[in-house]
Nucleic acid binder design. Structure first.
Lengths: 415, 415
DNA sequence: GAATTAATAATTCAATTGGATTTATTTATT
DNA sequence: AATAAATAAATCCAATTGAATTATTAATTC
């Protein structure tokens, strides 16, 4: 048949991939255990028979796995469900006190340290505001904060802490002037490896992730995630950022910046091309207030401290909504997200107004051929970043990313 | 500790997910077999020991698996490699004649039917052009074409045909006037299920996928894919379309339209907002030529039939490059792709000019904060859609999507 | 209405299956 | 002699299969 050869010889560049490894029994068991835990978390409470049906595993296998998880204290049994023919089923649920985790949200205006339990509830928290962050102060806040919170736990509880997850912005030194930091004051951050510095002072495993990505992760697990297999997420903080969920898993991309979204080009009020973050960020509102002689301090202290600032705030919401609507159309043209989720470091009533305005603005755009996502409010709220941070240690150890058996290799490894 | 409860009760919507099932040994073997095949394909030729190292599987396991694959004729052994200490290693490579597959590319101007071998080479092909496609003619072309090509094979070869993969545009009836079809002529396509109709007339399994996504798949496997773990792909046909590769796997999204890219809003020549497909599509060039009294027929017959059309073509390339550059920035703001790959149904020299122009235009945009992908030419070329189509049956049966053990459930199942 | 029997479903026990690993051996080379 | 590839045999381990146990509701009989 070689005489029939058509146009051939497609050049194949040298492979750079390091595909995931092979499968074996040990990994299969680890995977199935995580799967079971994740299913229980997703549905709140499931019997062994339920898990067997939903996982496709045999009843016996599920029985064995769940007995182990119960023995380890990760699962606990609920009240038997009667009323149906047959032996009553025993719903198993996640034991909220099985695992605790610290989450640190470090921002341009404030830091939060939270202790989260195994079902995503904040059990304790500390808060600090500042004009701009400095490494030493952050380090002191974390180390003393962890000590303080741990003091309130007993020995047994302390032993169940899975680790500390940090949610922090990328490249803090950028855009420093926009938020009023003295020129050069943020340059110290260029040489700081916060994760390493904290790890050296804390006796727990330390994880770190972009703050908006973390918030997105919190939304995935504890918010609207279970209802939408993929969504684009916007978190409006001092600077707007975002994240991407695909196949019910965070997609953080090659450089970890997927879903950063801030630099997305949009058309500004006067038709000029601007970056999304120059419009839909809280620092913009802050500057608008300052220009009008209004004290913006209430913006930082706590999301609940916001008041209705009137006209400048309405203008900011309108501008932001216009920009967000464009960003959503652009995102939808690239991936057919089922939802666009908007949340931020502000009270719920502000979020509602932003989302409604964005829905209105989106309707005015040219949507031919675009599969538009549902535009909805985030369900987690202002603390999403800290919660997302705190989830990192828990997910690394106990839960599965949808259907990926073996985690992607580290970025460093794939050179 | 419950007295310390912080802000809690995050509402959890009803789960809609049907996460992937559990793992077991049978699936593990199937997965490992595909992994081995994929590794051999990726690297061209690897010894059993190499595979063991790269997969993390034990030498014995790999030995067993590869002997089976060799016995099945999928792998064949190369010349022993001497010159190093120890027993010489025997590189195993994919047997190109182990599996054949048909690929049908159906477009607005022409259709191609190809027979592809197991390493992605086109062995035979048929081509047909038309003013616009009609279901009956396409059906006749495929059925008679397959018969004709199969006649040139012997019985043994015929038995190795894995199936037929169709690459066709979404919603053919849209934009019909733009390409000069009589009003309403394309409406017949609304009620046609091409995949089912062809499957009823052909004795092979039939697969179908969007044409641009198919081209993207061909690029992933046979083109630049091995060098870039994620990229956004543009295929410039009668209409521009595209695809997305994440973690070395096609991402086709919830509705199968991820990476459609056509409706992406960009700024046109006069500052007005337009959709990418209204600028960077071959039908636009076609119309430009017609306006100037130039016969556009050479555009359709074959990519090699193109001639340099001079000024109108240069203008089209410039306009397209401006639009593509904006699309790439938008895509990069959402996902940090390592590359943006541009290919199309045109000769290589046109592709080179488009890519160079796009690189130049991208440099003029505001890139602060954007992780820009490398803008590169596709390595597969004008036949990418047909090759991608032909890969569908092969991939469904023999190769793995990176590290996903169990394929995502069908979209229909996840309601 | 109470007692009895059948049907159903959840769970577990015991035996089997099958694929990966481990250990030891053979082969071919520098 | 050292090294590396390849394979054979024995072992291990998690999932499955099929049977048994348990707890319940539903239907029937007295």
């Amino acid at each position: 048949m070689s005489s029939l050869d058509g146009p051939a010889n497609i050049p194949v560049p040298p492979p750079i991939l390091n595909p995931a490894g092979g499968a074996n029994q040990v990994r299969v068991r680890a995977y199935n255990e995580r799967l079971v835990l994740s299913l229980v978390r997703l549905y709140g409470a499931l019997s062994k028979a339920d898990i067997a049906r939903r996982s496709g595993l045999s009843a016996q296998t599920v029985s064995v796995i769940m007995r182990v998880l119960e023995k380890e204290g990760l699962l606990s049994r609920g009240e038997p469900v009667r009323g149906r023919v047959g032996q009553p089923s025993i719903p198993m649920h996640i034991n909220p006190d099985a695992v605790y985790s610290f989450g640190l949200k470090m921002g341009r205006r404030s830091a939060d340290l939270v202790l989260m339990d195994f079902v995503g509830r904040i059990r304790m928290q500390l808060h600090r505001t500042y004009a701009y962050p400095l490494p030493d102060e952050i380090l002191a806040f974390v180390t003393s904060g962890i000590r303080e919170l741990e003091d309130r736990l007993d020995d047994k509880q302390r032993g169940r802490i899975a680790g500390l997850g940090i949610a922090a912005p990328f490249e803090l030194w950028n855009w420093a002037e926009e938020v009023g930091a003295p020129p050069g004051a943020m340059d110290v951050w260029r040489d700081v490896d916060l994760q390493a510095d904290i790890a050296a002072r804390v006796s727990h495993p330390v994880f770190m992730q972009n703050d908006a990505t973390s918030a997105c992760g919190a939304e995935l697990v504890f918010g609207v995630g279970p209802s939408y297999p993929d969504f684009v997420y916007f978190f409006i903080g001092s600077f707007i950022g975002g994240g991407i969920v695909l196949n019910s898993a965070i997609f953080s991309g090659r450089t970890g910046t997927a879903g950063a979204i801030g630099p997305l080009p949009v058309r500004g009020k006067n038709g000029e091309t601007m970056q999304l973050l120059e419009i839909a960020s809280i620092f913009v509102l802050e500057n608008m207030l300052r220009e009008r002689g209004i004290d913006p301090e209430p913006l930082w202290y706590s999301a609940d401290g916001w008041v209705d600032f009137g006209e400048p705030m309405e203008a900011w919401i309108q501008d932001s909504a216009k920009a967000l609507a464009q960003a959503i159309v652009a995102a939808a043209s690239i991936v057919d997200f089922s939802a666009a989720v908007i949340d931020g470091g502000f009270p719920d009533w502000v979020r509602s107004r932003v989302v409604q305005a964005t829905i209105d603005e989106a309707a005015k755009l040219d949507l031919q051929g675009v599969v538009m996502p549902e535009i909805i409010e985030g369900a987690v709220g202002a603390q999403a970043r800290a919660i997302g941070g705190a989830s990192l240690p828990i997910f690394a150890r106990y839960l599965t990313d949808q259907n990926v058996l073996f985690k992607e290799v580290d970025h460093a490894e794939r050179t």
